[in-house]
Design a binder for these strands. Structure first.
Lengths: 139, 139
DNA sequence: TTTTTTGCAAACCATTTGCAATTAG
DNA sequence: CTAATTGCAAATGGTTTGCAAAAAA
């Protein structure tokens, strides 16, 4: 007997899958709690890493402190707003620089994956520099 | 009166500048200590962030836990070995995907910087999968 | 002298872990 | 049944911070 499909696991996955804002473990925890009572943060972390190991979610470690989770596992990039912290998915407009990868491969490196992240200001924060709230609160 | 050029600040900067392995704050601390007695870790952190604010060093937050520091501030990418944790600089072989950036710009985002990181196995770890030490210890 | 910086230790925050009690299969 | 999972709380690891003493300018 192994690999159980617990209520908690399902809830954690559903939460990440339905989120559009790349929530942190804490945010996932808060959202899961709104649907079912008393799920511990530790359990959320454990399920999150289990899902990551199974490739059902991707872990994003951007400039920020806390890791963020993304249920879209297909290759794509991200944009991080340096003002409000929001993370957006970026459609890969053209193939990422094969040049560097080939360079590495020739030098004996085995490239397994790559991550491209853009930093700057999102439309809301870039528009005018006063009237923006710090975060789009994870309710 | 402001912005003092202390022995500690100089030592921290010199250490990062002379390093080729993108050391963590802890590693910088250890190396600084070899040159001058009793410098506290807190001071190393403070100086590191001061240098970062002045753009004299770049802070790298890769998949690992601890931040790493790089004295090369010109745009370039990195490769992270998933086995030994080593970080290597990558010469940007060809222009980074202008496509995605243009896409973002058109959508109202202001792109200020970008970071491309490759993950995989470095030559040493990829060669054979047994005889490799976990880290290239910072002597 | 005056103000920044340091050292130290405690505080913090995100994440992990040990263990007894639950629970899915 | 019984091994995997949970909840809880304590432990960890990286980084920050308050404060009095030390040292640049």
């Amino acid at each position: 007997v192994k690999e159980r499909r617990t209520r908690q696991l399902r809830a954690v996955y559903a939460t990440v899958r339905d989120a559009v804002d790349h929530p942190t473990a804490d945010e996932v925890h808060a959202r899961v709690r709104r649907r079912m009572a008393a799920v511990s943060l530790g359990t959320v972390y454990r399920n999150l890493q289990k899902l990551a190991a199974q490739q059902h979610v991707r872990v994003l470690r951007l400039a920020n402190r806390a890791a963020r989770y993304d249920a879209i596992v297909e290759p794509h990039d991200h944009f991080v707003c340096e003002r409000c912290g929001a993370v957006a998915d970026v459609v890969r407009g053209e193939r990422v620089p094969a040049g560097a990868a080939i360079h590495l491969t020739r030098a004996g490196y085995r490239v397994r994956s790559q991550e491209l992240t853009f930093y700057g200001l999102c439309p809301r924060c870039g528009a005018d520099r006063r009237s923006t709230r710090r975060r789009q609160g994870g309710s």
